[in-house]
Write a protein that binds this DNA or RNA. Structure first.
Lengths: 217, 217
DNA sequence: TAGATTGTTAATCGATTAACAATC
DNA sequence: TAGATTGTTAATCGATTAACAATC
């Protein structure tokens, strides 16, 4: 694999989509696919797909295309799925609870070690086999267990403070589900946010536009 | 407001962030802000902010900057927050349940009308005051209530089918939380997806990169 | 071999940044 | 008025698309 200089965010954000699409093709029993067929199925140009993959090296075969299994594996490697990353959940309220129960962490290469909360009713229990510890023990836990990522589902008022604690404790990344833009001074820590509000407001804009179009065609 | 020709997706995706940041500034009691100060607080250039706002018209005052309240209002208008959009939730499992309880729909200008599920244990109950109806009654409900958006938290196996039903019933948008890329033939229906997996895999890539950097500095 | 399709460079397009006149 | 800062056009930069030789 070509460990290249600099891959743009646009390309990186498409990698999980490629992975997802290839998984579906694999399940459908497809063995090979061309860049143009993959592009058509994803709404991208063949050129873009070849250009994207070219960032990491040649995974295809001229005159043949790409082997679905092989390409999926390669992209999984690039994404680090087989690295055995670990994660903990901060905040075992409704959303944290739902993610612990529903989200397939292991399918994405993550091992969920524990959850943390301050509610005495939750601390000491387990959710889908995952122990809920007291937030006070966060630093001790991270010191004794290898934690790569902290998932933030705490109330917005506690978000920044919890983020700081995670960074100080030495995590490599924060997966932020709070509607707050976590500020992280340490550039070696990655912050990835899922902002529900931003997503819904984008949708609100799109349907509003269409409402206007219908009114003034 | 300048109802302009075509605003790029990049700009649209920044609007909710502006709105969020302006809300925070407003809460902090700030009355005016310049494009350079706003840019600094958001990690954008002043030029980009002025260019973005220029897409919709002149909201500022030369020599002064922007009024925080006024600009927030204007962006809220653009996003359609005051249009009284309505929405229903499809799938009242863990995630649907958590969103109904936690997510501030009204802060984003949406009124949550009902939830739908097939589980007889859930149907007939209410979650945070929101009635859970049987999925069979979906079309009847939409025919008799104005539903703008359907929020999909159904199992992935039911995602496309439920999406189709929503489109046929006449919703304007789909807010998709399943890990499936909803295919929608009707271009007048907007689909906005929140793909947790894509987000986590992006984070996985970022921390993997940094792991490699530490190994081979 | 002929046909297909990639890898890779070049051209185009669009988004971001810079510049500056307008003006508060 | 002088200073500040926008609105708006022009320049730059980066991402996408096109093209085509390489080759399976």
């Amino acid at each position: 694999m070509k460990r290249n200089t600099k891959v743009s965010t646009a390309v990186i954000r498409r990698l999980p989509r490629y992975y997802r699409q290839l998984s579906e093709l694999q399940e459908a029993g497809m063995e090979r696919i061309s860049s143009s067929a993959l592009g058509k199925s994803m709404g991208l140009t063949a050129s873009q797909i070849r250009q994207d993959l070219f960032c990491f090296g040649g995974f295809g075969q001229q005159g043949y295309g790409y082997k679905v299994d092989g390409l999926k594996e390669e992209i999984g490697e690039i994404l680090g799925i087989s690295r055995g990353h670990t994660l903990i959940v901060l905040g075992a309220g409704n959303l944290g609870h739902a993610l612990i129960r529903n989200f397939r962490f292991s399918s994405n290469g993550f091992h969920l070690l524990a959850a943390f909360d301050v509610d005495p009713l939750r601390v000491g229990t387990a959710i889908a086999g995952v122990p809920v510890c007291h937030a006070d023990t966060l630093e001790d836990f991270i010191a004794t267990h290898p934690v790569d990522v902290g998932l933030l589902t705490v109330p917005i008022s506690a978000a920044q403070q919890m983020g700081d604690r995670l960074v100080n404790a030495g995590v490599k990344g924060i997966w932020n589900f709070t509607n707050y833009e976590i500020v992280c001074a340490d550039p070696s820590v990655a912050v990835e946010s899922v902002h529900f509000s931003d997503s819904l407001l984008t949708l609100s804009y799109l349907i509003s536009q269409r409402e206007d179009l219908e009114e003034h065609p």
